[in-house]
């Protein structure tokens, strides 16, 4: 590689380093840092590129930086203390932090039952109570008799089983006879 090619290569390398990390040699790749620093000292074009990068860096420093106003902190604290804290994230929601995170479900498989679970449990309990009440009061006996008749008669009798739950038509006819 002749001198011209080497210089062009170094200029290209410097341009890339400046684009990537700005005019901060310590942030450049270790492999090229010393080489490029020496190159800037000796080459006019390299020095110009470096000076331009520094100027751009100074311009970027003009970007407005938010300064917390006197009231902002108070506003944040007030808003926070009016908000309930989540003692865990809702189901299926996770805050991702890289690839090693797990959802809250994975972390806490034995989670507190949701509201829908309690609704279903209440319905089951209520139906059990109604079943016990009906069983104890004996009101279901005619129904059971009717079902027994249905099982023992042919299809016509079964078709006649209609109307009130506790007054199967087939049973009435039999009693009237």
């Amino acid at each position: 590689m002749n001198t011209k090619h080497t210089r062009e290569y170094l200029l290209k390398e410097l341009e890339e380093a400046l684009a990537l990390a700005g005019p901060y040699p310590r942030r450049w790749r270790a492999a090229c840092c010393a080489r490029l620093s020496a190159f800037i000292e000796t080459d006019h074009e390299a020095a110009r590129l470096f000076a331009e990068a520094r100027a751009l860096d100074r311009v970027l420093c003009y970007a407005p930086e938010g300064k917390p106003g006197a009231t902002l902190e108070g506003c944040i604290l007030r808003a926070a203390f009016q908000s309930p804290q989540n003692r865990g994230l809702p189901r299926g929601i996770e805050i991702r932090l890289g690839g090693n995170t797990r959802s809250r479900m994975q972390q806490f498989p034995f989670r507190v039952p949701s509201r829908s679970f309690w609704g279903e449990a209440a319905l089951l309990a209520a139906s059990l109570a109604v079943g016990i009440y009906i069983g104890m009061s004996g009101e279901a006996v005619p129904t059971l008799r009717g079902l027994d008749m249905m099982a023992s008669t042919d299809g016509d009798a079964a078709m006649a089983f209609s109307g009130s739950l506790f007054e199967p038509t087939g049973l009435h006819d039999q009693e009237q006879l």
Binding site: I76, A79, A80, N86, G88, I95
Partner: peptide, 9 residues
């Protein structure tokens, strides 16, 4: 605010 509400996570 999320730091307050989700500090537990």
């Amino acid at each position: 605010l999320r730091l307050w509400t989700h500090a537990g996570s």
